[in-house]
Amino acid sequence: MERPIGVFDSGVGGLTVVKQLSKILPNEQLIYFGDTARIPYGTKSKRLIQQFALEDALFLLQFNIKFLVVACNTASSSALEILIQRLTIPVEGVVEPGAQTAVQKTRNGRIGIIGTSATIKSSSYTKSILKLMPEAEVFGQPCPLLVPLVEEGWLDDEVTKMTLKKYLAPLMEQKVDTIILGCTHYPLLEKAIQQIVGPQVTLIDSGKETARVVKERLAALKLVNAGPKPNEDLYFVSDSARQFSQVGSRFLEKQLENVQRIDFDEFLIKHSDAPLLKNLEVLHEE
């Protein structure tokens, strides 16, 4: 099926998922939306994250997508359920695939999670892990400073290394043997994190695991594009296209061109009566 796959994130981090999807699904067209005008999602309330996720999905639906990937840990933690309820196409987030792999990889049942404040507060990874492995001990560590450091490109900077050491210290004290990189920005810090925690700790890239699950689900649903890639990937943002291209090129490890900035406020006003956005008052805080 030649219809594209839609991918959204609050910003540029979801491009780590796009990178993995492109590797294992080279014949699929990807349409990406980065809601850069409203980043970060990680500090917002659950209700607002749910609203933003529905609005992001609405933008991508206009391209007749066949599958939606929520390439944002915060939105996956807080809004996946409402997206699955309201959409008629399959949806995959980044939490479940990462949790499943962590359970498979851990040797001592002590699993750490690093992520945004909202992701850690939601306990989404913890719930998913305990459902699969009730005896597991799970330790969450919010790391709110890492996203801006990654977006600044400070991957090997001493400030970043010091910040990582401070965030990772409580997890190492708990003797975790597996850590989930619970934010799509964090794979860019994987090398630095591995140096700090040592080779005995397994790092789980939830974006990589999500791409694998998406491929499996597409095959099971008979939605795989069997022919050549129908069109080039498209990238849309709600704020500066130039800034996104600069930072995004680091994430994809190739030049990112043809990024289009859209007036998202205008789009939402124009589609304010869309059924997907009705009854937002039923969204809840916790």
Score class of each variant (00 low, 15 high):
31 I>N: 01
31 I>P: 04
32 Y>W: 11
32 Y>S: 01
35 D>N: 10
35 D>W: 03
36 T>R: 06
37 A>S: 15
37 A>M: 12
37 A>K: 15
37 A>F: 12
38 R>K: 13
40 P>N: 11
41 Y>I: 06
41 Y>P: 04
41 Y>K: 10
42 G>I: 08
43 T>Q: 14
43 T>D: 13
44 K>W: 00
45 S>K: 13
46 K>Q: 13
47 R>A: 08
47 R>P: 08
47 R>H: 10
48 L>Y: 12
48 L>S: 14
49 I>Y: 01
49 I>S: 02
50 Q>A: 03
50 Q>L: 09
51 Q>S: 12
51 Q>E: 15
52 F>T: 02
52 F>L: 11
53 A>V: 00
53 A>R: 00
53 A>K: 00
53 A>C: 04
56 D>Y: 09
56 D>M: 11
56 D>A: 08
58 L>S: 07
60 L>N: 04
61 L>P: 00
61 L>V: 06
61 L>S: 01
62 Q>W: 11
63 F>K: 12
64 N>H: 15
66 K>S: 02
67 F>T: 05
67 F>Y: 15
69 V>R: 05
69 V>W: 03
70 V>Y: 00
71 A>R: 11
71 A>S: 11
72 C>D: 01
73 N>E: 08
75 A>E: 03
76 S>M: 03
77 S>I: 09
77 S>V: 10
78 S>M: 13
80 L>F: 13
80 L>G: 00
82 I>H: 02
83 L>W: 07
85 Q>H: 13
86 R>T: 09
86 R>L: 10
88 T>E: 13
89 I>N: 01
91 V>Y: 06
91 V>F: 04
91 V>N: 04
92 E>P: 09
92 E>Q: 15
93 G>P: 02
94 V>K: 06
94 V>L: 08
95 V>R: 02
95 V>W: 01
96 E>T: 14
96 E>G: 07
97 P>A: 03
97 P>V: 06
98 G>K: 07
98 G>C: 07
99 A>S: 14
100 Q>R: 14
100 Q>E: 12
102 A>C: 08
103 V>R: 04
103 V>L: 05
104 Q>S: 14
104 Q>T: 13
104 Q>Y: 11
105 K>F: 07
105 K>N: 06
107 R>E: 13
107 R>C: 09
107 R>K: 14
108 N>V: 10
109 G>N: 12
110 R>T: 08
111 I>M: 03
111 I>G: 00
112 G>R: 09
114 I>V: 13
114 I>C: 01
115 G>S: 11
115 G>T: 08
117 S>W: 12
118 A>F: 04
118 A>L: 08
118 A>D: 06
118 A>W: 07
119 T>K: 01
120 I>P: 02
120 I>R: 02
120 I>V: 14
120 I>Y: 04
121 K>M: 05
121 K>R: 15
122 S>P: 08
123 S>K: 15
126 T>D: 03
128 S>L: 05
128 S>H: 06
128 S>Q: 12
129 I>L: 10
131 K>P: 07
131 K>S: 14
131 K>N: 14
132 L>G: 09
133 M>Y: 15
133 M>E: 08
134 P>V: 05
135 E>H: 13
137 E>N: 12
137 E>G: 03
138 V>H: 00
138 V>F: 02
140 G>S: 08
141 Q>N: 06
142 P>W: 02
143 C>H: 04
143 C>W: 05
145 L>P: 04
145 L>M: 12
145 L>D: 11
145 L>R: 13
145 L>W: 10
146 L>F: 06
147 V>H: 02
148 P>H: 09
148 P>V: 11
